[in-house]
């Protein structure tokens, strides 16, 4: 038995998912919906039925989104650019994280007295681990485990609020942090290597860097295919 607030919440997320309504638009529509429900309930309609009638009268989400998109055209494109920038930053962040992890592993190996050869394998392992972690996180976000987070993000980013744009700072800062970390660990591990080993280590890193360039797009393609088969859980019941 879903309570009224839950249903209204899900209705609101379905509208927000269209991407063309700002937070204020949604507030206005929700206020209208609640007032309509209130009036209908006064005429002795059950809450459930009142919700259905009010929702029907308000209009189907698809046409509403279309109409709002026409009025909020600028905001819709800003939202798209935001998501594209976010995607780019996310990938760069994962790459930097993988690079950092691999160098930390190499450094750990060298520090522990392992041969440069083994440390090379260690660093490759670090990179694979980072990729697996990123893949798992993407899976969790997109398969509905973090529904509340997605709803919040959807609403935040479909508005023109500065708050939404500031979220982009998070991956940007992390990229700088990871990049700096990578440089430091690279410098540290180079000190532990004899000059003649350097070539070997860099060769190994080059191999795995190219493997990474193949693995990353492959991983994304797999993610897309798998996600297109399952339905991404949306908010509408």
């Amino acid at each position: 038995m879903c309570n009224l607030n839950d249903r209204i919440c899900r209705w609101r997320s379905a509208l927000a998912a269209g991407g063309s309504c700002s937070g204020q638009d949604l507030d206005e529509l929700e206020s209208h919906l609640r007032e309509q429900i209130g009036r209908l309930v006064e005429t002795d309609l059950a809450e459930d039925e009142a919700f259905l009638v009010a929702r029907h009268r308000l209009g189907d989400p698809a046409s509403l989104s279309e109409e709002f998109a026409k009025v909020n055209a600028g905001a819709v494109w800003r939202s798209r650019v935001f998501w594209m920038a976010g995607g780019f930053l996310a990938i760069e962040m994962i790459s930097q994280f993988a690079g950092l992890l691999s160098r930390v592993c190499a450094l750990a190996g060298l520090h522990a007295g392992l041969s440069p050869e083994t440390s090379g394998w260690f660093s490759a392992g670090g990179r694979v681990l980072a990729l697996a972690f990123a893949f798992g996180a993407a899976w969790a976000v997109l398969s509905g485990k973090t529904l509340k987070l997605r709803r919040r993000l959807s609403e935040l980013t479909s508005g023109a609020s500065l708050k939404a744009r500031l979220i982009l700072l998070v991956p940007a800062v992390l990229i700088i942090v990871f990049g700096a970390g990578t440089m430091l660990t690279a410098m540290a591990s180079n000190r532990l290597l004899r000059p003649e080993d350097l070539g070997d280590v860099y060769m190994k890193q080059a191999y795995f860097h190219s493997a990474w360039s193949v693995l990353l797009p492959l991983a994304m393609a797999v993610l897309m295919v798998v996600l297109s088969r399952r339905k991404i859980e949306t908010a509408e019941a």
Partner: peptide, 15 residues
């Protein structure tokens, strides 16, 4: 009228 369609019109008028 579809109730929801009122609001885009209101926004356009405001713009």
């Amino acid at each position: 009228w579809t109730d929801g369609m009122l609001y885009p019109v209101l926004h356009r008028l405001e713009e």
